[in-house]
Computed example of a mutant assay.
Amino acid sequence: MKFFFLVFAFFSIFISQHITPTGALSIGVAYGTKGDNLPSPAQGFGKLQERHVHRVRLFEPDPDILAYVNSNPVFQIMLGTLNDDITKLASDPNFAETWVNTNIAAYPNITFSYIVVGNEISFPSDLANSLPQALTNLDAAIKSTGRTIPVSTVVSSAVLGESFPPSAGAFSSDSASIMRTITAFLETNQYPFFANIYPYFAYANNPEQVRFDYTMFNTSDVVVQDGDLQYKNLFFAMVDAVFSALEKAGGPNVQIVVTETGWPSAGNGDIATVANAEMYITNLLGTLFINEGSPKRPRHDLETYIFSMYNENLKSEGVERNFGVYQPDLTEVYHVYWPDN
């Protein structure tokens, strides 16, 4: 536990003194809405503004939230499409234009940082086959309005066929062809790739072989030596496996945005606890502050979104309901030392 407390103390001092790090620290929150008891956008976004959190991921367009942000444009919004819209976005450029006019052009005061086409599409599938054209059509529709907003998609670590060691990272045989097409689109347009990175699931699924302190940024040991690169936490190892897969798919210059990471506070015995959730997030933020990037990309800011804003009671029972930093009444599940960014 010693390493955790050192990082915690160092990061707490940084926050309390409002010291600006040498490298950028781009931290946001994923703002889910799968609950029937959630606060209003004014209350929820007001809490974020109070904590100086200005980067927010919305999983789908919500007119009430977008209207609020349009009237209070201090936030940068990563806006997602529904998975159900992917086929229509791919097959009908007019639908893509309507989507842009309804959800982007109608809110001229909002800074849209990214548009996310779908979330964790399964490979192989008809939706996966539609992804490249959906990205292309939506990108063209956005550019036709005179705006340039990076368009990409989110994948889980399941899209990797190989992930260990990180340098061996490669997309699976089921996804490789489509991922090469998507990677080419991102490389050409200089758009980032979106990845959900969850050391929690790696540990929860195999606690006998995955070190707990390695998942928690809580060791100074080199746990994985990969050529000249050293890994002391699983988060960076998982990120660099995705970087390796992108390189092999023809995207050596494609950057990564971590669109979700977190640790549940309940729903899985003594693995998912409030103490563990607080430790994971605190050490994550401290590690991102100390390191400008991962071992493979050490001088690139790794923009990262914490999952999630709330515990959402309409999600599946168990851990899925318990990733929130806040309860629906805006009391803290645990305290986060959000950096000013």
Rank of each mutant, 00 (worst) to 15 (best):
A134N: 10
L135Q: 02
K143L: 06
T136V: 10
N119F: 07
D92Y: 15
L138C: 03
T148I: 01
R147F: 06
R147G: 00
P124H: 10
A106Q: 14
P124I: 13
G146W: 05
P150F: 15
I149K: 00
K143F: 08
T102S: 13
V116K: 12
N129V: 09
N109L: 13
I149D: 05
A105G: 08
I110D: 08
Q133N: 11
V116W: 13
V116R: 09
V116D: 12
L131Q: 07
N94D: 10
N109Y: 14
A105R: 15
F112Y: 10
A140S: 12
S125V: 08
P108C: 15
P132I: 13
P93W: 06
I149R: 15
Y114N: 13
A96G: 08
S130H: 13
A96F: 12
V116F: 13
P150M: 02
V151E: 05
E97F: 04
G118R: 02
A96M: 08
P124D: 10
L135R: 07
F95S: 09
T111Q: 15
A105V: 09
T148L: 13
S130P: 03
P124F: 15
W99A: 02
A141I: 00
F112D: 05
V154E: 06
P124C: 10
N101K: 05
R147P: 01
N119K: 08
I142N: 11
S130Q: 12
T136P: 08
T102Q: 15
G146Q: 01
N119P: 03
N101C: 06
F112G: 01
N103M: 10
G118L: 04
I149S: 00
I115Y: 11
L127W: 08
S130C: 07
Y114E: 10
N137Y: 08
P108F: 10
I115D: 04
S113V: 09
N119G: 09
A128W: 10
L135C: 01
A140C: 05
G118Y: 07
A141E: 00
V151D: 11
E120L: 07
I104E: 15
I104M: 11
S122V: 15
E120M: 14
W99K: 12
S125N: 02
F95K: 11
T136D: 11
D139E: 02
L127Y: 09
V116A: 06
A96H: 14
A128T: 01
L127Q: 04
L127G: 02
D126F: 03
P124A: 06
N101Y: 12
D139N: 08
D126A: 12
S152L: 00
E120C: 02
P108D: 13
T145K: 11
E120H: 03
S122G: 07
Q133C: 03
S152V: 00
N109G: 12
R147N: 03
E120F: 11
E120W: 04
F112S: 03
T136L: 14
S113M: 12
V154K: 04
N101L: 09
G118W: 07
A96S: 15
P150A: 05
V100M: 04
